[in-house]
Design a protein around this nucleic acid. Structure first.
Lengths: 197, 197
DNA sequence: CTTGTAAGTAAGTATTACTCACCATGTGGT
DNA sequence: ACCACATGGTGAGTAATACTTACTTACAAG
C-alpha cells in the first residue's frame, strides 16, 4: 500500500534531503536508489512507499525549491509599479537565482526536460505559475501603453524566458562565471530598446 | 575489438536508422538497446561494435541531422548581405527546421542536455559551428554600424538562440502548432526594434 | 482489547546496458 | 595455394539497477 500524503514522516523527509544533497555531487541519472536510501539511512523499499518512482521523488524535491523561488519573485515584483521595471526585476532575479543555486538550475535546465513526465508533474505546475506571472505583466504593459501595441505577449514571454535560460547555460554546463548585473542589464536593453541602430 | 570508422557497414546504418525511428515514438531513455537491435534486425552486441555506448549512438544520429541543417543555414545566409537580414534568415530557418524535423528537435532541445558527455561529443561541435556563425554575423553588424555600438555580441547571441529554442519548446513537447512566419517575424521585431513604446 | 493503519524492513525479481568469446567471409602478401 | 588478419556479425552471458511484495512493529481510536 502506498502513502496517502496526509502526513510527512521523518523517513520521507530524509529521503528528499538525501537526493537533494546527492544532486550537488552528480547528475540525477547516475544517482542510484540504493545510494539515496543509504544516504538517508532508510531501506530502499521505503522510497517507493512515499514516491511512485525515482522521477516522482525528483519532482517533489524540485517543487519545494520552486515554491521558494516563486515567492521571492512575487515579493520583489510588487516593489515597482512599472511593467518594464517588473520585467527587469524578473530577469535579474531569475539570473541571480540560477547562479546562486546551481544544483537546481542544472536539474531544471538540463535534467528534467528529457522526460515528458515532468510536464505533467507538480514541479511543472510551479514553472507554469512563474510563466503566467510574466505573461500577466506583459499584458498589463500593453494595456497601459508601456509596451508597443501589437506586441504578441506569448512570443515576448518566449523571448524573455529563452534569453534568461540561455544566458545561464554556459555557467551551468561549464561552470563559467556570470556577471549578473551586466548580463541582465544587457538582456533588458536588447529586449526593450532593440539592437537595430 | 571495436570498429575503426573506416567503412560504413549495413548493420551500422540500420542501427542508426532504428534509433532515429524509435525516437519519433518515445524518449531516448525509455528506448532499450534490445529494442534498437530488434528494430534494426541485428543483435544487441553489434551496437557496441560500432558505438561506445548508447549515448554515443545518440550523438552520432544527431550529428548527421545537424550537418544537413548547418549546410542549409549557410547557403541561405549568403543570399543577403545585410546583417539584420542574415539574422532574420537564421531565425526563420531555425524555426522551420525545428518544426520540420521534430525528432531531431526533440533530441537537441530535450534529450541530449542531461549528460555532460554531449558537450564533449562530435554533435556538440556542430552546435558550436552554428553558434559561431551567428556570433560572426553579429560582430560584422556592429562593425558596419547596422547594429547599435556597445551591444554585447555574446549576450545578443544568447537572446537570439534562447528565443529560437524557447519558441519551439511548446510545439516539441506538447505537439502544438507553430506559425513559423508570424513567430519568426515577431521575434525579429522584438530583438531588432525592441518592445518599449 | 481489538482493529486499522502508518512507518519501516528485507529479500526478492525483471530488466537493462554492456561484455566477451566465438564464427564466417573476404582479401592481400608471400 | 596458404596463411594471417581485419571486417561484419552472433548469442550467451553478467553486474547493476529500479521497482515489488510479503512481512513486522508501533500506536492511536473506538
Amino acid at each position: 500500500m502506498r502513502h496517502k500524503g496526509k502526513t510527512n514522516p521523518p523517513g520521507r523527509i530524509r529521503i528528499m534531503k538525501s537526493l537533494s544533497d546527492l544532486m550537488a555531487e552528480k547528475d540525477f541519472h547516475s544517482i542510484t536508489t540504493a545510494e539515496i536510501a543509504r544516504n538517508a539511512e532508510v531501506t530502499e523499499g521505503l522510497i517507493y512507499k512515499y514516491f511512485r518512482d525515482k522521477k516522482d521523488l525528483l519532482y517533489q524535491v524540485l517543487k519545494e525549491h520552486f515554491e521558494a523561488f516563486q515567492k521571492k519573485i512575487e515579493t520583489r515584483v510588487n516593489e515597482t509599479g512599472s511593467c518594464v521595471g517588473k520585467l527587469d526585476i524578473i530577469i535579474y532575479t531569475s539570473l541571480e537565482s540560477y547562479a546562486a543555486n546551481r544544483v537546481f538550475s542544472k536539474i531544471l535546465l538540463l535534467e528534467v526536460r528529457n522526460s515528458l513526465d515532468f510536464f505533467k508533474s507538480c514541479a511543472y505546475e510551479m514553472v507554469q505559475t512563474y510563466s503566467r506571472t510574466i505573461l500577466n505583466i506583459i499584458r498589463q504593459g500593453i494595456d497601459t501603453g508601456e509596451l508597443k501595441p501589437g506586441t504578441d505577449p506569448v512570443v515576448l514571454r518566449k523571448v524573455i524566458l529563452g534569453a534568461i535560460e540561455h544566458a545561464c547555460l554556459g555557467e551551468i554546463i561549464f561552470g563559467r562565471e556570470l556577471d549578473i548585473d551586466r548580463v541582465s542589464r544587457e538582456i533588458s536593453s536588447i529586449i526593450f530598446q532593440g539592437v537595430k541602430a
